[in-house]
């Protein structure tokens, strides 16, 4: 179980200004500003949960991940992960976690992947039989059997990312932190990575915390969402809650045969091309099924689809709402 209570962290950042005279001035005096990277962050993640951690750049996502993985000591607050405080008992703690940075590699660049794996096995003191079992399971699930003997620098980004994920799981951690794992990947690799994470969470019960800017990742993977902005947790809830809370409008796209669509206060026809129309309804006034019933009462429906606001749009409007 992961428990964060009132975690706060402030950084001191040196100012640098442009121009010749400023540059000379800076030789003698430096100005600093203080940035509140984390303000009173609290949340709890149960074992086996999968959580999406979202927020704009610089919101405090990676600081939180650093605190949880023991690299960063917060100014105040408490963080207990499986009974340990990460920054106090670093060595024991990191045995239980795996971390994947989408933008950085942990594999040794010039040697075949398998050499890196074997070194990691020794670093984490994984016993031989356990290693073999984990490795064969991972190579199969991630489909990296063919590339495992290739030097890392010759791999494509998608191949490398799959190897990175395998490398982070060799010691069978209970918790996996994924920092933008699908960044820069093509569609096929993205889906492969998502499927794997899903399976891992379902079958091994690994707790997964995922930070990403890719809303499709969130949609595909996580039920629960944490939204952080300016160092504060703004929202903690499920994806559908998030959507509902923010948007009560849905769009019905219908193909129909008939004369005239019904007109009502709670249904707005935004486009009608005779046989094909888009109708926006407010779900706080009328439910989707009521709307469909009303429409089919006056025309014959051939096809209908219901779309809500996309997650991306929701998030953008959330950012706006919280002014971040």
């Amino acid at each position: 179980m992961i428990e964060l209570k009132n975690i706060s962290k402030t950084f001191k950042v040196a100012q640098r200004s442009a121009g010749f005279s400023e540059a000379v001035k800076a030789l003698f005096k430096k100005e600093y500003t203080y940035v509140n990277a984390l303000r009173d962050v609290s949340f709890t993640v149960q074992d086996g949960e999968m959580v999406g951690y979202i927020g704009p750049n610089g919101a405090g996502k990676s600081s939180t991940v650093k605190v949880m993985s023991g690299i960063l000591t917060p100014d105040s607050g408490e963080c207990i992960i499986d009974g340990l405080t990460p920054w106090k008992s670093r060595k024991e703690h990191v045995k239980n976690i795996g971390v994947v940075f989408g933008q950085r590699s942990q594999l040794w660049w010039d040697v075949p992947v398998i050499d890196s794996f074997e070194l990691l096995r020794d670093i984490y003191k994984v016993d031989e039989s356990g290693y073999k079992k984990t490795l064969s399971a991972l190579t199969e699930q991630l489909n990296i059997g063919d590339i495992i003997k290739t030097p890392v620098r010759q791999l494509s980004l998608g191949q490398r990312m799959r190897c990175e994920i395998a490398a982070s799981l060799l010691h069978s951690p209970k918790i996996l932190f994924l920092d933008e794992p699908t960044i820069g990947l093509d569609a096929v690799s993205k889906i492969a990575v998502r499927d794997f994470i899903k399976t891992l969470n379902r079958e091994n019960g690994t707790t997964v915390i995922l930070t990403t800017h890719d809303m499709q990742d969130i949609e595909a993977l996580t039920e629960r969402i944490l939204l952080i902005g300016k160092g504060r947790i703004l929202l903690d809830g499920t994806l559908s809650q998030l959507k509902n809370r923010h948007s009560t409008h849905k769009t019905l796209t219908v193909d129909y045969i008939g004369e005239k669509l019904p007109e009502a206060e709670n249904m707005t026809v935004v486009k009608d091309m005779g046989g094909h129309a888009e109708i926006v309804i407010d779900t706080s006034l009328i439910s989707v099924s009521q709307a469909v019933a009303q429409i089919s009462a006056s025309v014959e429906l051939k096809d209908i689809s219901v779309t809500g606001e996309s997650v991306d749009e929701t998030v953008v409007s959330l950012y706006k709402e919280f002014n971040i």
Partner: peptide, 13 residues
């Protein structure tokens, strides 16, 4: 600068 120190801190050694 390369952030590899973070990686080192993530390993139990």
């Amino acid at each position: 600068q390369s952030g590899n120190l973070d990686r080192i801190l993530l390993r139990p050694r």
